[in-house]
Design a protein around this nucleic acid. Structure first.
Length: 947
RNA sequence: GCGGAUGUGGCGGAACUGGUAGACGCGCUGGUCUUAGGAACCAGUGCCAAUGGCGUGGGGGUUCGAGUCCCUUCAUCCGCACCA
């Protein structure tokens, strides 16, 4: 029996010595760039997640290589970053030293996976020969106006003592350490990723990426089409602009809200309101983002005393400040339309601000076309009355005798009559109840397709709804006509929604029981002058055209995506290649002076200032323009800058003249298959796309997207089904598993035991099974015999397996492809006693080679084949073995399987039917029944329908 | 609240465009070989009052036929979260 660990280490050594996985960039085979996300060299050992990512992806890469591709499969390290620096603060060990050491350990562990990486192309982002070009990237972006410095409110982590990109703030907390992020005004470097927002959004459609990842990015980019509308401040020369997606509701704007931190607030606040406004502002600043944006929080706000002029109707509307308006989105100012926006509604209700309805629901359909084609809105209006029982929890309804319709009391509103008066009259007429009290009107009118039973006509009619209650059940005699028409009934809340006949009354009841709220559905415009009768789409177009024509505003698009903040007040990163000169201002370091070297001797104490600031040899320099004394930028670049272009460096990793040879990388890029965690969806994956597009526009690249196809591995959970964590004590260490079973067995289990995309809980039993399976393969190899014999049973399974394995590997379904290898193995076991012809053993080893590279290499050699199995071609199936002549199909009677029959593949339908009907068990279910029809699906199933 | 995903035996997980649900493996049961076996091999294994019935979270529908399509509902997980 082989000692897996021994042979594995033996072969790893040999592969390395022989450079078995050497990439040939001149090969004329079809290139395939397979890349796993590189990792941060932490002090901890390689965890199971690394193994899952790297070993399984390696199997795929190996398969593609054996299948004839010129595989480019590099590996490296994302080596700058905070942990090393924090470690230095704690222990005094310099990041350069600890990082080197960690990389060394990780390289060793990675090699033990048995990956097919060509280490000659290794990248370490913290090395001068790499970060020199990271700095070069910065300079190029700066040249193009895509890197700029500005004073802005930024996210600052008080614990890490540095600013963070928007993407690094998770629910108001620091992505890394979890501390609450605070807002600070600081002068920082940004990359103008927003210039590419639209393209980043649109090009997602071109990518073979998981849908959820694309959606995460779409969401993050957050495109929203709307309009800017300018409001003048009454009695002043001030004005402000709001952003709205619903300019069509402008006639319903009854107030405006400014974000408390807008400078305009101070300018327009009246003397009387100053104190209240200042106090509110102060409190708003104190709150963290989480508190501020908590949806459960009640709306708060203060009136500024000032009024804005609604540009479309000249109306004066109050200007408030409130923290529900964010200074960071849109313009930091909104027009509030309480009738049709939940938040505005809540706010208006709380502060007694008028609510003007400008959209009305129509049960006939929304929009002017519906009205045009249907009945016109009649002058005559209708009131619907929800009447509560004086003592019980019941509601008054009438039941139409002719149609059994159940509805609330309803009726036309006479001229000179208010809806309330009509309600009282109708209740009396229809039900005879007289002691009626109106409680309130429901907020919004709507249009109904109203059927007047006595006139037998449909009308599109305006509906009001009032809520009333009876104080007593005093009742007068109803007219004969009313008695003949309908019964008076009382039903409870639950029965109402089930039994009400018209949609409109169900809608009334729902709104009443749900306490109304804003009307946020689409509807027909009302109270809106030139928009009346239009639907949303038409009204939006008309309003936006009107605003532009009059100069009141213009159509626009906003994005949630912010420019990427790249400066960090930390040491262990690439220095930003910028010099500040008193005379010349901001001066980029000339390319010839790159790299701006990160000095070794610095103090690490974090105090919110870059450690480099205290390093005089670094800071002091001369201005490249005028030669006077100048200082360097003390901040370093976010490590995501390093990882935004590493995939471009790999193919030309040792080029010391340029970041990459243009011709070469345009040949090898884009990455064909990129494999890594989903957690990078809105950071690394977005940034890298931005870099690619920017470099393309600078003429360096001739492709638009860096990663054509993307796969996320799932997460391996602890045996308890929980996420693995040291604190929970449910971690599984790959090292000890490798020691016990060997790398191939671990790889095998990772592939076989899970759906790669989903991951799942670890089980110890599973890995034993793979061990057993590989032992079986070893045993079968020993049962080899030199013979040209072909066994058709085996051929059939072999070629079927090969076909499925290929298909499944393309889909990243390693579990099912391994299952097929096992099926093939199982058939070989049947012939083990009489020994197995060489051909079948070789096929087994070849098909297994990408999965278990070490063991197959050893067994390949042991049966006397030449080194290396990994230079062999992956076996191809032959269609001729897949053609079936006979097949077993199911016979169903009324959809239930009653028998199976064996048919010849070219049996006619008649023969198949005959065979089926002859089956005893089929007879039992058909004999005393009438056969209605027989459905034969060729080669699949037959279904006999009986009655 | 919005968006997305998932739900199949005791377990991990299969199932192409609707066509014999449970591939493959673990576990379990019985057997063979053995001094012994936690080794290997062979047979069996969805559930049940079992020549039948029931079964893919629940309810309804379309269909000759539904894990797969439609409607509805529940549960779990993950994003975003006052985005105007």
């Amino acid at each position: 029996m082989l000692n897996f660990n021994e042979i594995e280490e033996k072969w790893e050594k040999k592969w390395e010595e022989d450079k078995l996985y050497k990439f040939d960039n001149k090969s004329d085979k079809k290139k395939l760039y397979c890349l796993e996300m590189f990792s941060y060299p932490s002090g901890a050992k390689l965890h199971l997640g690394h193994w899952y990512n790297y070993s399984v992806a390696d199997t795929w890469a190996r398969f593609k290589k054996m299948d004839g591709y010129n595989l480019f499969h590099p590996m490296g390290f994302d080596a700058f970053g905070l942990p090393a620096e924090n470690y230095a603060i704690k222990t005094g060990i310099h990041p350069a030293i600890s990082t080197d050491k960690n990389i060394e350990t990780m390289e060793k562990q990675l090699r033990r996976i048995g990956g097919s990486w060509d280490w000659d192309y290794e990248i370490k982002t913290c090395k001068e020969d790499y970060y020199k070009w990271t700095q070069w990237m910065f300079l190029k972006l700066y040249e193009k106006g895509l890197a700029y410095k500005k004073e802005a409110p930024v996210n600052f982590c008080p614990s890490c003592n540095t600013v963070l990109a928007n993407e690094q703030v998770i629910a108001g907390n620091c992505e890394r350490c979890g501390s609450t992020v605070i807002r600070k005004n600081m002068s920082q470097w940004f990359f103008k990723i927003t210039d590419y927002a639209e393209e980043l959004l649109n090009d997602l459609d071109k990518l073979d990426w998981p849908d959820r990842t694309k959606n995460l990015q779409r969401n993050w980019i957050g495109k929203s089409v709307g309009a800017y509308v300018d409001f003048k401040v009454d009695g002043t020369n001030e004005k402000f602009t709001v952003f709205t997606t619903r300019s069509d509701t402008l006639f319903g704007a009854t107030y405006c809200v400014l974000a408390p931190e807008l400078p305009l607030v101070d300018k327009i606040t009246t003397k009387e309101q100053k104190e209240a406004v200042d106090k509110y502002k102060e409190e708003a600043c104190k709150q963290s983002d989480i508190e501020r944006t908590s949806t459960t929080k009640e709306k708060t706000g203060v009136f500024t005393g000032a009024y804005a002029i609604n540009p479309v109707n000249g109306k004066k509307i109050p200007i408030w400040i409130s923290d529900y308006v964010l200074s960071t989105y849109g313009t930091g100012a909104i027009m509030a339309v309480p009738a049709h926006d939940e938040r505005d509604y809540e706010f208006a209700k709380k502060f007694n601000i008028p609510i003007i309805q400008v959209l009305a629901k129509s049960f006939y359909g929304t929009g002017n076309s519906a009205i045009k084609e249907g009945m016109p809105i009649t002058e005559r209006n209708v009131v619907n009355v929800i009447v509560k029982h004086p003592t019980e929890d019941k509601y008054l309804c009438v039941k139409n005798k002719e149609f059994n319709w159940i509805d609330f009391v309803m009726g036309g509103i006479e001229e000179k009559e208010t809806p309330r008066e009509a309600a009282i009259r109708e209740v009396k007429e229809e039900t005879g109840y007289t002691d009626i009290e109106i409680l309130k009107d429901l907020d919004f009118i709507y249009y109904d397709n109203f059927y007047a039973a006595h006139k037998k006509v449909n009308r599109h009619i305006t509906c009001y709804t009032v809520i009333a209650k009876l104080n007593t059940l005093n009742q007068i005699e109803r007219t004969e006509q009313e008695k003949n028409l309908a019964d008076v009934i009382w039903i409870n809340k639950n029965e109402l929604l089930d039994s009400l006949t018209t949609e409109a009354h169900k809608y009334d009841a729902t709104r009443y029981f749900n306490n109304e709220g804003a009307f946020t559905e689409d509807g027909i415009h009302i109270n809106s002058d030139f928009l009346n009768g239009l639907n949303k789409e038409d009204a939006l177009n008309k309003m936006n055209a009107y605003l532009e024509e009059k100069g009141y505003g213009k159509k626009t698009t906003t994005y949630k995506l912010r420019d990427w903040l790249v400066s960090r007040q930390r040491y262990w990163g690439a220095p930003i290649p910028i010099i500040y000169c008193e005379d010349c201002g901001i001066v980029p370091v000339p390319e010839k002076d790159l790299p701006v070297k990160l000095p070794m001797a610095v103090e690490f104490t974090p105090d919110g200032e870059s450690p480099l600031k205290k390093c005089n040899e670094f800071m002091n320099c001369t201005c490249p323009k005028c030669g006077k004394k100048a200082v360097r930028e003390a901040d370093t670049l976010d490590t995501f800058v390093c990882s935004s272009w590493y995939y471009l460096r790999y193919p030309d990793a040792h080029n010391d003249k340029e970041p990459f040879n243009k011709e070469l990388i345009n040949k090898i890029l884009p990455v064909d298959k990129y494999i890594g965690g989903v957690e990078h969806a809105c950071m690394h994956l977005l940034y890298a796309r931005f870099f690619t597009k920017a470099l393309r526009d600078m003429g360096y690249l001739n492709f638009d997207e860096p990663f054509l196809s993307l796969v996320h591995q799932g997460t391996i959970l602890g045996p308890d089904g929980e996420k693995m964590s040291k604190s929970k004590g449910n971690t599984v260490a790959p090292d000890s598993l490798v020691e016990e079973y060997g790398a191939d067995v671990l790889r095998g289990y990772l592939m076989f035991g899970f759906n790669y995309i989903d991951g799942g809980p670890w089980t110890d039993d599973g890995i034993v099974a793979i061990n057993k399976f590989y032992r079986k393969v070893e045993r079968l190899t020993n049962a080899i015999k030199e013979s040209d014999e072909r066994i058709s049973d085996i051929d059939k399974v072999l070629h079927n397996s090969l076909k499925v394995i290929r298909e499944d590997l393309d889909k990243f379904q390693f579990n099912t492809s391994m299952a097929k290898i096992m099926e093939y193995t199982n058939i070989l076991v049947k012939y083990e006693k009489s020994s197995i012809p060489r051909y079948y053993i070789e096929q087994l080893l070849l098909m297994l080679a990408p999965f278990a590279p070490h063991i197959t290499e050893e067994l390949w050699a042991s049966i006397g084949n030449k080194y290396s199995i990994h230079n062999e071609t992956y076996p191809m199936y032959d269609e001729k073995y897949l053609v079936e002549t006979e097949k077993e199909i199911a016979v169903q009677v009324n959809g239930k399987v009653r028998a199976t029959i064996t048919i010849n593949i070219d049996d006619s339908e008649e023969i198949v039917k005959e065979k089926a009907l002859k089956e005893d068990n089929v007879k039992r279910f058909t004999d005393d029944k009438e056969i209605v029809k027989i459905i034969v699906i060729k080669g699949k199933i037959i279904n006999i329908v009986v009655k």
